[in-house]
Nucleic acid binder design. Structure first.
Lengths: 225, 225
DNA sequence: AATATCCGAAACTGCTAAGTACCGTATATA
DNA sequence: TATATACGGTACTTAGCAGTTTCGGATATT
């Protein structure tokens, strides 16, 4: 039905910044007004909001247009279809992720992990997981979208964890034989499951129980009783 | 839009086995043919197949009817709506889960966990996760459905893990302070994420890496190097 | 065998939402 | 300032699907 051809989407996911070279070159406009691409991020953000609230199939273009205070035609002038819009919106999310170089270094693995638990992170993570839930139904229809979702939503978190653990190894805090690849995915995976299925909050208590009940014990670090 | 009122669904999720007492008592049929409820499981199974393949919103009643070689009217004679049908189908899945009493007891926690890795389990789990993905978009619209999904799909797995760990505690193999609640959800959560987003197989190797790289280390059991 | 009822198939209704076309207005360019 | 174009808004077209109705044929009950 709403079958999307992935290559088409993946070839031009940068519609946001691309200057529409084809159209403009063809019609050679010398006069008049140019497209106001400064509003694109607002529209994409509105799309993400609606996506998080209603899911892909429940979301309508009119909802997005209304939320962004834009005309429906404007949206279709920039994205050829609803699917393209959503994919672009999700893909552009990954720009707003952590800068790996300026993460705190507290001196201990536990300190690093706990330092990541902040109201802002929790809130932000919750929204991303809602978006992931909204896109879920598309995943089975469009192979390749899964990669975009992974790269934009979960992978950033996992890579932060991976970095903390590598640091801990360099520090001599944990064994270099630890299965970092698997361990770094535990928190993202469990947070996703907890939000999407259990409908329980991914709060400080939950995150601490993973750190102190799973990650650190698995790495051979004795937790403060 | 497709807003479902949860109470309605939860009050009568047993449409399958209920003998339609109201209708039959009212019209008092003495002659003719009775409903062939023997086909209900086939229809529900067809619904689950379509659900796994296309997701809730992509699935149409015609698809289910066609797959079950039944008329669309027949489906509507038994379930009042698409939502009811799907909910019933998901709810009835939990009947086909493990019998907790006749699980293997190998004498060690690792033995028990590894004994659960069988081709059949893997295959079965994959389908359940596909179904879960298909139902995902409904979750945000119908509070209460999440419980049904959890009870039918993931909880059975988690409870097996929980039981193995309780046994291990009784055996003195692991500390009674272990955070069993959290640990028993690791495998289901990570399997879900791996299937739905990563699109990688939940195979023997993956499951072993969780057991030997996460669960057993977290419980203080040294893995055979 | 007679009959009341269920069955599968298919036509039909009504609604929702994607996508398009158009309009009067605002605005960046020349 | 003049103009071509994009803008927001709205009306429209179209397609797909949930749910209903109808019908000839099959089938269990009496």
């Amino acid at each position: 039905m709403t079958q999307i051809d992935a290559p088409d989407l993946l070839d031009a996911p940068d519609l946001l910044d691309a200057p529409d070279s084809l159209d403009e070159a063809a019609s050679a406009p010398k006069l008049g007004r140019k497209r106001d691409h400064t509003r694109d991020p607002e529209i994409l953000d509105a799309a993400l909001d609606v996506l998080a609230e209603t899911g892909y199939d429940g979301m309508t273009i009119d909802m997005v247009a209304a939320r962004a205070k834009a005309g429906k035609a404007t949206l279709y002038r920039r994205w050829p279809s609803k699917a393209h819009l959503v994919l672009d919106a999700v893909a552009c999310m990954k720009q707003s992720t952590y800068d790996l170089d300026q993460l705190p270094d507290t001196g201990t693995l536990r300190g690093d992990l706990v330092a990541m638990i902040k109201p802002h992170s929790i809130e932000d993570g919750e929204r991303k997981l809602q978006i992931m839930a909204g896109v879920m139904s598309m995943l089975s229809r469009d192979p390749g979208l899964a990669d975009v979702v992974n790269a934009a939503i979960v992978e950033p978190r996992a890579s932060v964890n991976r970095m903390f653990m590598r640091r801990a190894i360099a520090r001599g805090e944990i064994s270099p034989d630890a299965d970092i690849e698997t361990l770094s995915m535990i928190t993202p995976s469990m947070a996703a499951y907890r939000t999407l299925v259990l409908k329980k909050p991914v709060d400080r208590e939950f995150l601490l129980s993973i750190i102190d009940g799973v990650l650190l014990p698995a790495l051979g670090i004795r937790t403060p009783a």
